[in-house]
Amino acid sequence: MPIKEFNGLSVEVDEEGFLTDRTVWNKDIAAAIAVEEGIGPLTDRHFDVINFMREAFEKHGTAPSIRQMNKMNIIPTRELYELFPGGPAKKAAKIGGLPKPRGCV
């Protein structure tokens, strides 16, 4: 697996740049991945989503779907797409240090 450096910290990522070990994740790594993904500076709203996704992943072993986050009033779908343009589920997972989501919906 490739090794990537974020702010002087070397972490292992998969071929698509997703962290292989979510426990090494921190906010600096998130910020660095966000820049690479073309997402502007991360706001509290971004972290609301990312933190919820990380907590849900710990509980269920998978990241929540866009629909679930909308239904649970975590974030409306429209806003999610505005925060993470160009593929919200995938980009939020990547920035949050989670594996690439494999849901079709």
């Binding site: 797409y81 593929g87 589920a89 995938k90």
Partner: peptide, 11 residues
């Protein structure tokens, strides 16, 4: 709907 929505999910 799955294909269209899935497209949006990929940007």
């Amino acid at each position: 709907l799955v294909l269209g929505n899935g497209a949006r999910m990929e940007g």
